[in-house]
Write a protein that binds this DNA or RNA. Sequence first.
DNA 1: TATATCTTGTGAAATCATTCACAAGCATCC
DNA 2: GGATGCTTGTGAATGATTTCACAAGATATA
Lengths: 197, 197
Amino acid sequence: MSLYLRFLEDHRRRGKETISSGDLAALGGTTSAQVRKDLSFFGSFGTRGLGYSVAALSHRIREILGLEREWRVIIIGAGKIGAALAQYRGFAERGFHVIGVYDVDRAQIGKSLNGLVIQDESAMDADIARLKPDIALIAVPAEAAQALLDRVAKAGVRGVLNFAPTPLHAPEGVKLRSVDMALELEILTYALVGSQH
Amino acid sequence: MSLYLRFLEDHRRRGKETISSGDLAALGGTTSAQVRKDLSFFGSFGTRGLGYSVAALSHRIREILGLEREWRVIIIGAGKIGAALAQYRGFAERGFHVIGVYDVDRAQIGKSLNGLVIQDESAMDADIARLKPDIALIAVPAEAAQALLDRVAKAGVRGVLNFAPTPLHAPEGVKLRSVDMALELEILTYALVGSQH
DNA sequence: TATATCTTGTGAAATCATTCACAAGCATCC
DNA sequence: GGATGCTTGTGAATGATTTCACAAGATATA
């Protein structure tokens, strides 16, 4: 779904007003029937003979994904990855607002990232209660990740995106996803050795 | 597969010598039958009544994934994300060696990252021919990503991990994976709005 | 050695996902 | 306005994946 949204944005930039399931399929490397099935799950908003209205479909997908509202995000860990995330433009462009960055390292606390001052991690729980962020990004060493996940979950955060290279167990009621860059590389190496025979 | 490897590493740290398919399933949120099917695809290395030897299975999976050798990696784009990747410890730990970092920005070129000097992008093609890196990490703005993918593919790189938030089309013979952090967040928001009803 | 207890490996069954195929709708052109 | 050309939406068929279920191997116990 998110991918379709990317294709639609691309297409809009090119000035097209409508797009067919076949075009979307070509972009996504799948079949037109697949695309139509995916979209029809949420209702039917194409017109026969013409395709889908890029604007209308974009809007509908944004609604479905919950992107029509702003999301408040905090970042835990102001190391290399945390800092990169805090300054990543793609988030703001898509409605994700970073409202806080936390770290335990006294050397980092007080520094400013993109206009945001790095806070002491001990202030985090109170901030969560007050500012009610929707999502927490965990960018800390693997050993600390599970404890922080439990902690933000307890404090009321319902969505967590983990960047630590370790599998975590999500507490009840918390949606967790992980981005593991080394794991992605491993999948690549598997594909590479597999294709050599 | 890579995930199983993570679980096994965890398990090894806890001092366990064997692990059952049921345990692996619990960690991965799947079923024991699923785990056994996955593993049996590559042969049978469990012992009945006991489970799998953590050490032997780790080793076998590392073989399958091609992690028993070193992989040479270059990073293209020395912005926030590229710099974070260049200094990421998880790579070296898993046998991925960053042998080059490239950028077009004169302000960045010459700076040192983790002992590695940022090179002018114009030197890239010659370096690829000479050093034969296995994998390229693309960490440049979305607009520049496709052109760079084509360029490294032509120069002989066979695996690419893309961090630009745009869908790319992989040239023939090139394995491509993408890490799109905004997309991950969107999947999270979908899960969050979906679970509210 | 016999018995009880685990756990694997794997056909068969059931479930899930993809692809096919086509009627029906819309736009365009003569 | 009727014929033509596209393209959607969707049942039916096909294919893939997951789960079930159980024989057979391994260990432990007595």
